[in-house]
């Protein structure tokens, strides 16, 4: 029975997250437009774009290799696999034992490497520029991520996402300044990993500023659809991760509980909407920073994570 419930939860979770991903992207875009005084495209526009792109045959550059054809599937596959591991409305999913924070970071890195290789495959200037910048930003984002994970792991005693989320939902830990600092660090990493303002601009095609878009310039048709879907899934994953760790309220416990699941879905939708609103507001309020200020931005995230860990050591020492 529990096994069956776990499988059902997992399938519902996947359906929910896959359905939410285009909406998250479209919703953030719509909210941003509204905040800037524009009407903006319909929130379902990304879904329409995807279905349009899917029905087109891709055009590959003449010297593209099999890397260009395989990388979109690898990126989308790793994104789906990673998003399947982050709990949304209920805990105790079938894949919960796999859901380790380091593994999720590894899967995201795999998607990133696939994209960088695709950017280098045709040998164009922009692809290489984007790949070099993306991998360099990651070099600063990963330490910040790991130090933030460190605070979570010390408090929860594990890097397993399901167990940590359950512990935080209990509320036995109270308010923790270390978790607040880890949250700030994770927010900065999330902004960088998802190519959002101020690190990158998802709407730009201006050569000198683009990072993420530069790598997929040569993609078209279903390949472009896959890249867009992978990006949407990654954004959803990060928001869901933040929601699961730092706003764990309303999540249904493990086991078969349709009523709690309904509550969980509602709570999750509300949390995601709030996070989207916050992201849109943040992006509207801030300007894109110069490429070489990004290390500083992520370095601050890292140092705040370190600060959180130090304060945590202090407070556990006093307990």
């Amino acid at each position: 029975m529990t096994a069956l419930a776990a499988v059902i939860t997992q399938l519902l979770h996947l359906a929910l997250v896959l359905a939410a991903a285009p909406l998250v992207v479209g919703g953030v875009r719509w909210l941003k437009a509204r905040m800037m005084g524009r009407r903006g495209p319909h929130p379902l526009q990304p879904l329409r774009d995807l279905s349009k792109l899917l029905s087109k045959r891709p055009v590959l550059a003449e010297n593209a290799s099999w890397i260009s054809r395989a990388a979109p599937y690898a990126a989308a596959g790793t994104a789906v696999a990673a998003v399947a591991l982050v709990p949304s409305f209920a805990r105790g999913m079938a894949f919960a034992p796999l859901g380790d924070l380091l593994l999720i970071a590894g899967l995201l890195a795999a998607g990133r490497v696939a994209m960088a290789l695709a950017g280098l495959d045709v040998g164009t200037a922009f692809g290489g520029l984007g790949a070099a910048r993306e991998m360099s930003f990651a070099a600063f984002a990963e330490p910040a991520l790991l130090v933030a994970v460190l605070s979570v792991a010390i408090l929860a005693g594990t890097t397993g996402l399901d167990a940590a989320a359950a512990l935080f939902q209990d509320g036995a830990l109270g308010l923790r300044v270390s978790l607040a600092l880890a949250l700030i660090a994770l927010l900065a990493v999330a902004v960088a990993e998802n190519a959002r303002i101020p690190v990158d601009n998802p709407a730009t095609h201006l050569e000198l500023t683009m990072v993420h878009e530069a790598m997929i310039l040569e993609a078209s048709g279903r390949h472009l659809a896959l890249w867009e879907a992978a990006a949407a899934l990654r954004l959803t994953l990060w928001l869901a991760l933040l929601a699961a760790l730092f706003v764990p309220f309303g999540t249904a416990p493990a086991g078969f509980a349709p009523l709690a699941w309904a509550v969980g879905v509602l709570a999750w939708v509300a949390k995601m909407a709030a996070l989207c609103l916050a992201l849109a507001a943040f992006e509207s309020a801030i300007a894109k920073m110069r490429v070489f200020r990004v290390p500083e931005f992520l370095g601050v995230a890292l140092l705040l994570g370190v600060l959180g860990a130090i304060l945590l050591f202090v407070s556990t020492r006093l307990a």
């Binding site: 087109k56 045959r57 550059a61 989308a76 596959g77 790793t78 789906v80 040998g123 164009t124």
Partner: peptide, 25 residues
């Protein structure tokens, strides 16, 4: 996941790829 993505995409999308010069902005 990769297989499912591949299968889903291939069902919706026309087969094969076209080749052309690199776009390169």
């Amino acid at each position: 996941c990769g297989g499912a993505v591949w299968w889903l995409v291939r069902r919706r999308s026309p087969a094969g790829v076209a080749h052309g010069p690199a776009w390169d902005c």
